[in-house]
């Protein structure tokens, strides 16, 4: 038998009840309501500081660290002067709160030296990326709050045990 520790490969291979996606940490959502690691990018939605009905869609690609920030109507962010804007920095900060620095840096493939800020360790240049896809994923995320509950049993959820979050 090889690795029998709770996270070991053997245990993972032959167990049914696992929490494969680690639970995220709660955080304040006012500034950055949506953050995700998906489609090869750290991407999310940042609320505008000045206009309550405007949001920015910001993303950083894994590997290249090329970034983009625009409004949900695809107008480029005015803060992108050859360097990441404040929206992108806010996105990185909140992603670190939500997922932890290890998970974010592993996903983006970036080395973060001891004591350094992840946002300062990214290379990359501005590269247009589709805002519409991210924005629609955010809308889909919001739509979950409108899905009605049910009191019929869902036996399939036995595969998804709740686990303790750090308190």
């Amino acid at each position: 038998m090889t690795d029998r520790s709770p996270d070991g490969a053997t245990v993972w291979a032959r167990h049914s009840r696992l929490r494969v996606v680690p639970p995220v940490q709660p955080r304040k959502l006012a500034k950055v309501p949506f953050v995700e690691l998906a489609d090869g990018r750290l991407q999310g939605v940042v609320s505008s500081g000045s206009d309550i009905s405007r949001v920015y869609v910001s993303s950083i690609a894994a590997g290249t660290h090329n970034y983009n920030c625009s409004t949900n109507n695809n107008r480029p962010c005015g803060g992108l002067y050859g360097a990441p804007c404040k929206h992108l920095r806010a996105l990185v900060t909140e992603a670190v709160v939500q997922y932890g620095v290890d998970r974010v840096s592993r996903y983006l493939r970036v080395e973060v030296p001891e004591g350094a800020e992840l946002a300062d360790c990214l290379g990359g240049v501005h590269e247009p990326a589709p805002a519409a896809v991210v924005f629609s994923r955010f809308l889909r995320h919001l739509a979950y709050l409108e899905v009605p509950g049910t009191t019929l049993p869902i036996p399939e959820l036995h595969w998804f045990p709740a686990t303790g979050v750090v308190r």
């Binding site: 995220v24 709660p26 955080r27 939500q98 995320h141 709050l145 009605p148 509950g149 009191t151 308190r167």
Partner: peptide, 22 residues
């Protein structure tokens, strides 16, 4: 017997706030 309540949520809603959804 068992009785269940299931509600939809998003990942950033966790911990004791889950009860509020139901």
């Amino acid at each position: 017997v068992r009785t269940s309540v299931t509600v939809a949520k998003v990942d950033t809603i966790a911990g004791s706030a889950l009860w509020k959804l139901s």
